[in-house]
Design a binder for these strands. Structure first.
Length: 603
RNA sequence: GGGGGCGUAGCUCAAUUGGUUAGAGUCCCAGACUGUCGAUCUGGUUGUUGCGGGUUCGAGUCCCGUCGCUCCCGCCA
């Protein structure tokens, strides 16, 4: 007989009755009747009830076994009597009567209960991650993650993509996020950087003629965390294709994403092709470039209707170059005054000067600003928003950037507070036509708005002839339920166009050569038109599992401050290690002595 | 770097306008119990109320500072 098990804890059924089997696992629950004792034995596959009779030599020892100890049980599979069948367990019609029992690993009292999915303090859960991972909830998420990744691989390969590995130790790229640096021992004073994404490598693979690349790629960025953004590292389904248009990329991604979401969820999923929304439209209608389409509220620009109105605050803003945005909401005219007051307060907390609104009620139009507007203006507003009795239209006016931010937040809040977010659906969209350049208010200069490697729409002609701020790029995002899954682009594979684009952004050709010499050189030796995208794997699993925190879909996540509380990373290193790397520390002053003593205790 | 929220037993939480010795469930320990399946019953241990200071006759409660976690802004080509 196998030393540990002949069957798993999820395996035994009525067919096995009469067999002598061996099962191993963790003690999930113990029910001690004094002269009879039950264990629920758990492993990855399920739960099996073990019965220990009082005449067994190991009976008393069993009474002392704590939860989560690992035991090995050999015994007979017995059918349970009719009244003791547990229908809630797949193995609930049988039990194993222990003949021998070995405590393989006795567990100390636990920092939190594994058999209760109540989540304890996150700090403790992270420190004892292996315990948390035993719990059904996390265990299931991590299994889902693995299955999703396997499915992504299958689907990519089915579409003719080849999986590659690219370097982890590479060079620092001057654009983008902060890099994680790794000092070189062999080259004093020089550093590798961990890749923020395999961007240049995948483009070089296209230049190498591999045609279709993909990778479940680890990406490293030293930026602060969010609920949906793991600090330090995350994974992307990175892909790149040669000789493709934007639509070709969309078709591939739609097939993979729609397929995966259909495979792992029974929610309703938008049919392909996913709706495409130009960036400029998205900013007006939703106030953001990652709209949650589950919320049935679409905003409108109504600046023109206030340009000549008697409402001075708005008219003045429009004259100054600002905008007025309307948020029409159906059927909330009967909300109490406090609802509106609170919303006004919320808008102000977002930085809005106020929140005007009109209420269509009982055939009349009421609200704080109604008296400033002519009948024609009110009629025009009603027509724009399709307002009928019971509807309310909110107005925000400011410079366009501020209006977008405030309206985007308000729309989401209204959707949530009014419970208007459609349930059980995944709503996808593509945001397309991102601007190639943007004006940086701080530096008063024109810079790249997203990826400097994107192909400008209209190519060299557009760069030479158009106002840079008018030029669009073949740059796109895919968004699901308000979560940005990914950015991608058709790349700029022409050295001339790239030099020109960088010139507009204020970088001379020499600078481009210095920073991206490798890639530019490659493009000078025969580069195919190519493009790609890199949907975030962690975020996909998050959406599929319904988690609102990305740590719930990562086996060993770091906390918000980018620490691994279980492995105690980052940590100090020895003098010798530093010496070999030619590194001398120049640390900031410690805040207090308590921190110092804690740190020295961990070394 | 900035703002919000939280911090009471190992865990989940309670404690009246500031008022006696800070409670309950769970875990743990001991005892009882032959059909449980969140076993049950009896008893017991567990506290620098995150830390420091202040106001007060009296602080878990109010004030200030600080630390930790978390959410958001900045940041994330």
């Amino acid at each position: 007989m196998h030393p540990y098990r002949t069957h798993t804890c999820g395996e035994l059924r009525m067919d096995h009755v009469g067999q002598t089997v061996r099962v191993s696992g963790w003690v999930f629950r113990k029910r001690d009747h004094g002269s009879l004792l039950f264990f629920d034995l758990r492993d990855h596959y399920g739960l099996t009830q073990v019965v220990v009779q009082p005449d067994r030599s190991f009976f008393e020892e069993c009474q002392r076994i704590r939860s989560e100890s690992v035991i090995i049980v050999t015994g007979r599979v017995v059918a349970r009597s009719e009244e003791t069948i547990n229908e809630t367990l797949p193995t609930g019609r049988i039990e194993v009567v222990a003949e021998t029992l070995t405590i393989e690993s006795m567990a100390d009292p636990l920092p939190f209960q594994v058999n209760i999915d109540d989540d304890g303090p996150e700090e403790t859960r992270l420190k004892y991650r292996f315990l948390d991972l035993r719990r059904e909830h996390l265990h299931k998420n991590i299994m889902l993650r693995s299955q999703v990744i396997a499915s992504l691989r299958r689907r990519m390969m089915a579409q003719g993509f080849t999986e590659f590995q690219t370097p982890i130790l590479t060079s620092s790229s001057p654009e983008g996020a902060r890099d994680y640096l790794v000092p070189s021992r062999v080259h004093p004073g020089r550093f590798y950087a961990l890749p923020q994404a395999p961007q240049q490598f995948k483009q070089l693979l296209m230049v190498s003629g591999f045609d279709r690349y993909f990778q479940i790629a680890p990406c490293f960025r030293d930026e602060d965390a969010r609920a949906d953004r793991s600090p330090g590292e995350f994974y992307q389904l990175d892909m790149e294709m040669s000789f493709v248009t934007q639509d070709d990329v969309f078709a591939v991604v739609e097939d993979v994403i729609h397929g995966v979401f259909t495979e792992f969820s029974n929610w309703t999923i938008d049919s392909t092709p996913f709706v495409r929304i130009p960036y400029a439209t998205a900013m007006v209608k939703y106030g953001t470039d990652k709209p949650d389409l589950r919320i049935p509220i679409e905003m409108q620009d109504v600046s023109d209707l206030f340009r000549a109105s008697k409402f001075n605050a708005f008219r003045g803003m429009v004259e100054k170059g600002g905008v007025v945005r309307a948020i029409p909401v159906k059927g909330i005219a009967d909300k109490p005054r406090s609802f509106f007051d609170k919303l006004v307060e919320y808008a102000q907390s977002l930085g809005s000067k106020g929140l005007a609104y009109l209420v269509w009620e009982g055939g009349a139009i009421k609200g704080p600003i109604a008296k400033f507007l002519s009948e024609e203006e009110l009629k025009a507003l009603a027509a724009r928003g399709g307002m009928t009795d019971g509807d309310v239209m909110f107005f925000v006016s400011d410079m366009v950037h501020t209006v977008n931010k405030i309206c985007g937040d308000l729309r989401t809040k209204l959707g949530r507070d009014l419970d208007r977010i459609a349930k059980g659906v995944y709503r996808f969209c593509w945001i397309v036509d991102f601007p190639m350049f943007e004006f940086d208010e701080e530096t008063r200069t024109v810079g790249f708005s997203h990826n400097p490697f994107s192909m400008p729409q209209g190519g060299m002609k557009a760069l030479c002839e158009k106002d840079p701020l008018e030029i669009l790029a073949y740059q796109y995002d895919i968004v699901c339920n308000g979560v940005e899954l990914s950015s991608g682009a058709i790349r700029n594979h022409s050295p001339e166009i790239m030099y020109k684009a960088f010139e507009i952004a204020g970088y001379p050709a020499s600078e481009v050569d210095k920073r991206f010499g490798g890639m530019i050189n490659a493009f000078k030796l025969g580069a195919p038109p190519h493009g790609g995208i890199a949907p975030g794997v962690d975020r996909m699993v998050m959406l599929l599992s319904g988690e609102s925190n990305i740590r719930e879909v990562i086996a060993f996540p770091m906390n918000q401050k980018a620490q691994d509380l279980m492995m105690n990373a980052p940590n100090t290193v020895t003098e010798k290690q530093l010496r070999e790397l030619h590194i001398k520390l120049n640390l900031p002053k410690e805040k207090n002595s308590e921190v110092r003593s804690q740190e020295s205790a961990t070394i």
